[in-house]
Nucleic acid binder design. Structure first.
Length: 864
RNA sequence: GGUCGCUUAGCUCAGCUGGGAGAGCGCCUGCCUUACAAGCAGGAUGUCGUAGGUUCAAGUCCUACAGUGACCACCA
């Protein structure tokens, strides 16, 4: 074996081996419970980032764990067509050549988009593979592929038939840059330091002016009313009168509405239903008209000759100037508010009144809410359920039509007879039979297809075997930021279409930040590329760094130091296996051992500890406590197996009576550790495993360890005591500056301790004598008291130092004793604490007492 | 404005259903001991944000407060 594992060459080789063996490919298996995960499909425009890496790693750990446990596992991968993001890319590339998408037309544009998808869409998948994830690549899907498109159309038509999908004119969020509608979820509210302008309109039939405040002076062109609070005594007298919007010379009513906050601004609000959601509501209540003042690019339309074609922000300045000139400008003050921006391009979105397709949400939200309430599925950690619930409780109808070309085109066909035919590939009007029908130009929101992902990828709406075998899925792992984009929509879509909640557990992973706790972003340029990390340290190290010591759902900082530390751990495991191989080469492999073979104390100790470990971490992993579980394996492997057991084994291997059992135990424990680690670090564990076993075997499909039926509790305790003794000896050697090379003589007086042959080596002794009584022990020895006996380090005595040490020891014991005694003298503790607690305290008290007596005795003897 | 986190060793963070505070990194001392210097052995450092409460027992449960962060939200 090489001195180090080289991930650069090894990982790819191993991954290809797995693919070739089709370990990740799932088929329905009789008598095997299935376990399914749908990979959140990354956008084809995306490049792999740390968020993907974490997300994919968590899923891979779970699916590999379950696969080893014997479940029939399926992990469905795929990508999302990312309607708007992809379209933006194509539009940009066209713009570079001086074209617009309209120049080349829909058909040609889509051709380009598909070409783009073929060229770049697979990149992120290949990048994901580098992490080592065990998806069933034979089942890879794309949200715009034929099957999924069929599912999308099916759902659209179904919902339309049921009346859940309708077309209506509504105020919607419009992106003037992308020139499409966007849903509420896609609006990002950004803090904005703006100005609140005070301006005034003349009240007709009086000489009075009413002063209102607005952050958007340009929208006065669309004003249809002034509103005051009905209880506002300042303005009561004006209600019912008319004010005049200058420039457009529009007469508008002054109305009373409780929405108006008397405290804010002047207490007078201008009402612009065409470009403000609140005003829209008010206008509905008061039956006011709506005036649209904008073109699709947010320039002023023909509402006003003077500003026609002018950008909204230019118009703002011009109108303010005009008001100043007219003497109707009052003042401007600084204000902090928020503005809604398109989350994709960042441009301030504009509410516009448009005819669009919507999904009626109120009714479908109900079962989705109930599903969580009644624990039909759950969030882990549970607190994220609140985001889900809040969003559903306050849900508005979902605007699903987009003025884009890349996506699922809406299956609605318009006829000159005014009838709309909603059907797949309609060729004639279903009402009048006219063949001259025109399909709706718009496509569906990307999330409409993602919402069907867990079942559309399994062949739905066809009566597929995969649906029967693998649906509903077991786990969804995703980020907190898309709970309302995606999780919510998957639940209600699935419940409506399949009658089932699409998953059992929704695991929320945190956000990976940089070492300074900043969000990694392209603009900041602080992103750490997972591929760079893989290149430098290997995928296994990356995976460990992302998972170890991290609580689920919590954000984490990422740094190369973390990766390095974990790389070191893997190197440690690698070298432990080299140690085993070296010895097996010399002494022979003992892969099996007969029942009558006697294990040494050390063997029994490590086997017992391993047994507990298996039980604990299996439970941890079943509870998704992956970080905790990993930490436990790490500690066991490094601190117990490598630091202690291997060192003990070195001596035992020289003992012909112990050699075989030791070789067996070394191998057995190491291989078990490899199994336990495999879900976390699949590559290196597989490499070691095949080195130790044979090329044909694979950890991927090997069994997850189960605790053995053994109880070496006493042996474990005995070795723990021995370890404690050795530690104290080392401690004293250190205090007295005795180098490792200088061997000492040790006498142990005990009638119960067994001193194994490793003791001398680990304690740095030339000889270790064990005797039942204190006879013939040299006077000049350092004395260590342990519960099972007394240890004498001969010829080391430095009386002064020894007195100091023993005094410290004595003080410590007295403190411990006092603690135990105070607990035991507490009547409430005795009465109310569990008996086990009380017993354990009593035992400790007894032990401390004994030790204290002995230490005190030694101390007195020295002082004489 | 609402909701939800976080505050534990110098730094980054674990700590499950309450029973004597942990890891990694860093730091100090000594070691190239034939698996591993990406290592070995030993060591130091914490009134677990503050104040109350529940309990025999609180880092862990409850309340308030203080810092800090995220998300949601129509104050023109």
């Amino acid at each position: 074996m090489e001195k180090n594992f080289d991930p650069k060459t090894g990982e790819e080789r191993i991954y290809n081996k797995w693919l070739k063996a089709k370990y990740f490919h799932a088929q329905a298996k009789e008598g095997k419970e299935s376990y399914t995960i749908s990979l959140p499909p990354p956008n084809i425009t995306g490049a792999l980032h740390m968020g993907h890496a974490l997300n994919a790693t968590l899923q891979d750990i779970l699916i590999r764990f379950k696969r080893m446990q014997g479940y029939n596992t399926l992990w469905v991968p795929g990508t999302d067509h990312a309607s708007i993001s992809t379209e933006m890319k194509i539009v940009e590339s066209l713009a570079e050549k001086g074209f617009t998408k309209e120049d080349i037309g829909r058909e040609k544009f889509l051709e380009m988009a598909w070409q783009w998808k073929e060229k770049y869409g697979g990149i992120i998948v290949e990048q994901l593979k580098k992490i080592g994830i065990s998806c069933d690549w034979d089942r890879e899907r794309f949200t715009l592929d034929q099957g999924l498109s069929q599912a999308v159309l099916h759902v659209f038509i179904d919902l339309h038939k049921k009346g859940y999908i309708y077309k209506g004119e509504r105020l919607i969020n419009w992106c003037p840059h992308c020139k499409t509608t966007i849903s509420d979820a896609e609006v990002e509210h950004k803090d904005n330091k703006g100005k609140l302008w005070h301006m005034k309109y003349k009240v007709e039939g009086t000489n009075d002016y009413l002063t209102f405040a607005t952050t958007r002076p340009e929208t006065i062109l669309g004003d249809v009313a002034l509103a005051v609070n009905p209880n506002d005594s300042r303005y009561n007298k004006y209600v019912g009168k008319t004010a005049v919007v200058p420039i457009v010379n529009r007469q508008i009513p002054i109305i009373a509405d409780a929405y108006v906050d008397m405290e804010f601004g002047t207490g007078v609000v201008k009402i612009t239903p065409g470009h403000d959601f609140n005003d829209y509501e008010i206008a509905l209540r008061h039956k006011l008209p709506s005036v649209n003042i904008f073109n699709n690019d947010a320039t002023i339309n023909d509402v006003c000759e003077e500003y026609i074609g002018m950008d909204r922000y230019v118009a703002r300045k011009e109108i303010l100037k005009k008001f100043t000139d007219m003497g109707q400008f009052v003042k401007g003050e600084y204000i902090e508010n928020t503005v809604g921006c398109h989350d994709k391009c960042g441009v301030v979105m504009e509410p516009l009144n448009k005819l669009q397709w919507f999904v009626k949400m109120e009714e479908m939200a109900k079962p989705a809410l109930q599903a969580l309430e009644t624990n039909q599925f759950r969030f882990v950690p549970s607190r994220f359920g609140k985001i889900y619930t809040n969003w559903l409780e306050d849900i508005k109808d979902w605007c699903i039509s987009r003025q884009l070309w890349w996506g699922h085109r809406i299956p609605a066909y318009y006829c000159s007879c005014n009838h709309t035919t909603v059907a797949i590939n309609a060729t004639k009007c279903e009402s009048c039979g006219n063949a001259d029908i025109k399909q709706d130009e718009d496509v569906l929101d990307t999330w409409f297809s993602s919402a069907l992902w867990p079942f559309s990828t399994l062949g739905w709406p066809n009566d597929s075997q995969d649906m029967k075998d693998f649906f509903p899925t077991n786990v969804l792992v995703t980020g907190p930021d898309i709970i309302f984009f995606w999780v919510v929509r998957m639940v209600f879509s699935s419940m409506e279409q399949t009658g089932q909640v699409p998953f059992k557990d929704v695991i929320i992973n945190g956000i990976v930040r940089d070492a300074e706790n900043r969000k990694m972003s392209k603009t900041l340029g602080n992103g750490i590329d997972p591929l760079d990390i893989i290149e430098q340290y290997g995928a296994d190290s990356l995976r460990l760094a992302l998972v170890i010591g991290n609580a689920l759902g919590a954000d984490q900082r990422f740094s190369n130091e973390k990766v390095e530390a974990n790389r070191n751990f893997l190197n440690k495991i690698w070298n432990a296996s080299r140690f085993l191989q070296m010895n097996e080469k010399e002494l022979g492999v003992v892969a099996n051992i007969s029942d009558d073979h006697e294990f040494s104390l050390a063997d029994k100790w490590i086997l017992n500890k391993l047994n507990s470990l298996i039980g604990e971490i299996t439970t941890n992993m079943e509870h998704y406590e992956l970080g905790v579980a990993l930490q436990k394996i790490y500690d066991f492997a490094w601190s117990e197996y490598c630091d202690w057991y291997i060192e003990m084994a070195k001596a035992n291997l020289k003992d012909p009576t112990k050699k075989d059992a030791t070789l067996y135990t070394l191998r057995y424990v190491l291989i078990t550790v490899l199994r336990l680690l495999h879900p976390y670090v699949p590559f290196i564990t597989e490499e070691i495993f095949t080195n130790l076993q044979n090329e044909e075997e694979s950890l991927v499909v090997s069994d997850w360890p189960k605790p053995a039926s053994l109880d070496y509790g006493d042996e474990e305790k005995a070795i723990e005591t021995t370890k404690q003794a050795i530690k104290e000896i080392r401690n004293i050697r250190r205090d007295m500056n005795i180098p490792v090379s200088q061997k000492i003589k040790i006498t142990i007086v005990s009638d119960q301790m067994v001193v194994e042959n490793f003791f001398a080596a680990l304690a740095g002794a030339s000889q270790v004598k064990l005797q039942p009584t204190k006879d013939q022990v040299e006077q000049s020895a350092v004395v260590i008291q342990i519960p099972t006996g007394t240890i004498y380090l001969e010829d080391l005595l430095d009386t002064e130092k020894e007195i100091k040490r023993l005094t410290k020891e004595k003080e410590k014991l007295e403190k411990e004793l006092a603690r135990a005694e105070s607990m035991l003298s507490n009547a409430d503790f005795l009465a109310k604490a569990p008996a086990k607690m009380v017993q354990s305290e009593e035992a400790k008290k007894e032990e401390y007492n004994q030790l204290l007596k002995k230490v005190t005795h030694s101390l007195e003897a020295l002082k004489k």
